[in-house]
């Protein structure tokens, strides 16, 4: 269309938003400000707490390495919990996500059931799962491993299913037109297409599992967490700093491995 004097109005830079949307934004803003009081957010407390933080940090150094071998063993156990839990969780997530993707599920009721299981696993926090499993199977790493499995299913199940929904339909249609069954289509067209996304999500799940497994010890679900809690409760800050440095090194090592694996596999 030719731009003439009759059509010289420039497009508006911003569109007028609907009144109800404007009201929603205002309500969200007001609620955010109101929530400051509920969250106990206090800059003055933060400032006054800084010397304490400095004191604790000061007492943490030099780190106490007398129990290094014991801490290393607990750290290794933490990693084992995370690794086994994440791998089992990823495998379960894969099968569950096939059922939870609308395009691949054999029946709509199975789709909703799978979605519900994944959402339930995800919406209950890992510490709550840990408390439940400690009560069920007793204190120790097995409870932690079960917690990580459930947590990984909640996390990976959702992302795997979403990746399957977004995959290009072309190869699927090609296999369908050749008389392939649904299982063949999933294994031959869907899985190769979503593999990069699966690998990415799985590696992130492993990183997340390592971080979670540290915290799970706080409720008795095995690993290094319980050591950290005891050290802090007994004001053994030097020993606590050794544990914190160990956790930091473990998490960084897993993240570095994860980055390397991503580069190699993708």
């Amino acid at each position: 269309m030719k731009y003439t004097d009759e059509h010289n109005a420039l497009p508006k830079r911003f569109k007028m938003i609907a009144a109800w949307k404007f009201v929603m934004y205002v309500i969200i803003g007001v609620f955010f400000l109101y929530s400051f009081s509920g969250s106990g957010f206090s800059p003055s407390k933060l400032v006054s707490g800084c010397p304490n933080m400095g004191r604790i940090l000061g007492e943490m150094f030099p780190p106490d390495i007398h129990r290094l071998s014991y801490i290393s063993t607990a750290m290794f156990q933490t990693f084992q919990m995370a690794f086994v839990g994440a791998v089992i969780g990823i495998i379960i997530s894969f099968f569950l996500s096939v059922l939870a993707s609308r395009r691949n599920t054999p029946h709509i009721s199975i789709y909703y059931a799978s979605r519900f299981v994944i959402a339930f696993c995800r919406s209950v926090p890992d510490l709550v799962w840990a408390v439940i499993f400690v009560a069920s199977v007793g204190l120790g790493p097995f409870a932690g491993t079960l917690t990580i499995i459930v947590d990984t299913v909640g996390f990976c199940g959702r992302f795997f299913a979403e990746a399957m929904e977004e995959v290009d339909k072309g190869p699927e249609e090609a296999l369908q037109s050749m008389g392939a069954r649904r299982l063949h289509i999933v294994m031959s067209a869907v899985v190769p297409a979503v593999l990069p996304s699966f690998v990415n999500t799985s590696l992130y799940a492993l990183e997340k599992a390592v971080r979670s497994s540290v915290v799970l010890g706080l409720v008795g679900a095995g690993g290094i967490g319980i050591e950290l809690k005891v050290a802090m409760d007994m004001f053994l800050y030097q020993e606590a700093s050794t544990i914190i440095i160990g956790i930091f090194l473990l998490v960084v090592a897993v993240e570095q491995f994860s980055m390397y694996a991503r580069r190699e596999i993708m």
Partner: peptide
């Protein structure tokens, strides 16, 4: 499925499995 297996369908976008 049996009928489809006897008909070769070639698409504009080729629709090969990429990886």
């Amino acid at each position: 499925r049996s009928l489809r297996s006897r008909i070769g369908l070639v698409f504009q976008k080729h629709n090969l499995v990429p990886r």
